[in-house]
Design a protein around this nucleic acid. Structure first.
Lengths: 190, 190
DNA sequence: TTGACATATCCAACATGTTGAGTATACTTT
DNA sequence: AAAGTATACTCAACATGTTGGATATGTCAA
């Protein structure tokens, strides 16, 4: 039940609508949590039932009504309870690795295309993260205020994203090197 | 539907029972795919319905009967069809990062404990991988046989596991450094 | 004016993953 | 002799994630 706690964590920062929470997931949270709009709305319904959040309907001129959700006292209790529980690493599921595993049985070019495709994705993502990092690092030096502390912890999550993308890129290069090496051997023999 | 293709990929190497497939997931596949015994059995049922695998019941002396599953021609077609489809990176969901995100609102020690816990997990996993790697690298040099090729591709998947654990460990150190730095500041002011 | 895009929410169906229990047999340890 | 571990499969219920659509309004560009 970690999606619920991620939403609680967001609402612990400030009240927000389902729509905007969902946008957070698409944007700055995307490096460690993905959720569709559907999931967010469904989960907010459950959180409301549990009494961990409540909402106020806000009519808007020219736009559909909003529901602004707030974390409740019970929500805070649940969030802190969860915070004391140890978390385990998320199980991994990676199609690409399965493709590599049977790489010897499939046309080499298909695998090469896949790896190149992934290289593009990961380097584009890394570039984005690096831009955010540059912006962060160019700010005035940080103090001890709550806001500055918040920014520092957020930066740590960004660093995780950077480490993740970097490790993928270096692995992609390993794969390409190995495959190129095979090609070379093949040529020297044929 | 990637679990189904992972099972097909395993069966493309050799026929196997559900029980043994499930053990593969716990062992050498664990660095890029996790699945419970339950999932494996359920998925084998679906694969059988689709005609992608079939099985033969094998009575055993002193043990329960086995069902040995084989990939069919249709299964091969499906596996190669899947192989030509581009795969996208798996969406990430990491509780620990959510905890870091609200680190400024929670007792510092809780986060420190979490990070230390993860350091232990990742370094234990890395150690395991390194042992397998050492074993692999100490083998006679590899040729061009199908078996040697298979081993090389498998090594690439191991390398991914090593890169993954390594990147977690270096991130954990970043977090600890940042938190220790905060402690220092706090002390110098108090 | 038509279509694309953004705001804002909700429903239904399905796929996938998790958890716990149930049914057997046989070997090993206490 | 009892308890634990390993083999081997099955059912049920639930949690979580995915996909496609429905409902509404408003802005902007072709």
């Amino acid at each position: 039940m970690a999606l619920s706690h991620t939403i609680l964590a967001l609402l612990s920062k400030q009240p927000d609508s389902g729509y905007d929470i969902s946008k957070h997931f698409d944007e700055e949270l995307s490096c460690y949590w993905k959720a569709t709009q559907q999931q967010v709305y469904r989960e907010l319904g459950k959180l409301t039932k549990n009494g961990w959040v409540n909402f106020e309907a806000v009519p808007q001129a020219g736009k559909p009504d909003k529901k602004i959700y707030c974390i409740t006292e019970g929500g805070w209790r649940e969030l802190t309870r969860w915070y004391t529980e140890p978390t385990e690493p998320t199980p991994i599921r990676e199609d690409l690795l399965v493709k590599v595993l049977i790489g010897h049985k499939m046309p080499r070019q298909l695998l090469v295309n896949e790896v190149k495709h992934r290289q593009q994705i990961h380097s584009a993502q890394l570039k984005e993260y690096r831009e955010i990092e540059t912006e962060y690092l160019s700010r005035d030096s940080l103090g001890n205020s709550d806001r500055d502390l918040e920014a520092q912890f957020k930066y740590l999550t960004l660093k995780r994203g950077i480490a993740y993308e970097t490790s993928w890129l270096s692995w992609c290069e390993d794969v390409m090197a190995m495959v190129n090496n095979l090609e070379g051997e093949g040529k020297s023999k044929g």
